[in-house]
Amino acid sequence: MRTLARYLRLYFIIEAQYIKARMQYRADFLVSSIGMFFSSLATLAVFWILFNSINDLAGWTFMEMVFIYAFYMIAISPMQILFDHFWQLRFHIRQGTFLKYYFRPLNMMFYYMSEMFDLKGLTQLLVGIGLLIYASTQLEISWTAARVILLLVTLFSAALVQVAVVLIATCAAFWVVDSWPVLGLAWKLREFAPYPMSIFDGAFRFTFTYIIPIGFVAFYPSQLFLRPEQVSPLVYASPLIGIALFALMYWIWTQGVNSYTGTGS
């Protein structure tokens, strides 16, 4: 517990300095936030256009899709805000600059992730929260205390799933020269998360539920709030799935860190 408190305190100190440094570049912050805002709305725009021609998608109404999408936006923002530095892991590994992370009395993953705090990702989080409030008002979801706790727990575990899937892909950089293709594929798969998993069948549904469980980033947990009576027991296991995947990711990371020998340059 004391270690956790120490790390939290450290994290706040490091990020406060980082944010001060970034705020030197206000124009960059503004322009990046605008870009983030547009990219947050792209898939929603696709839904909106599609629902001009259809009334429902596999039984889900437009407003329900907005809710699922809002859940997705919030669930992916911790990856964006806290773990953004992992996009550069492949460069650090190839150029040998990754060696510096071995030389501090700190947890290496903590040290590595703390070096970046993505401010523009806050836009994504805000868009998600705004849409979630809007959609749940339209859908007349009553937010009891129990539901709010359930929302926080499911969002947390959905965020763990998302972080785990992307970070496992970035860890490929420890073993292959260019991990971009693996990362790009994981990133592309993530975009399918806000679609109703019920439209898929066969191998696709199996993969998105059990192998690369992006269904647990948004669709399955959202059902707890939209159609609680139809939820399969598996959905209640989603916190466990999040924790298990995160643990798996951490194990792979540890293997990668231990096998890294530098590049000699």
Binding site: Y25, S32, G35, M36
Partner: peptide
């Protein structure tokens, strides 16, 4: 100097 946001948009 900042191109990410414009390219993204």
């Amino acid at each position: 100097d900042s191109n990410w946001g414009i390219s993204m948009t």
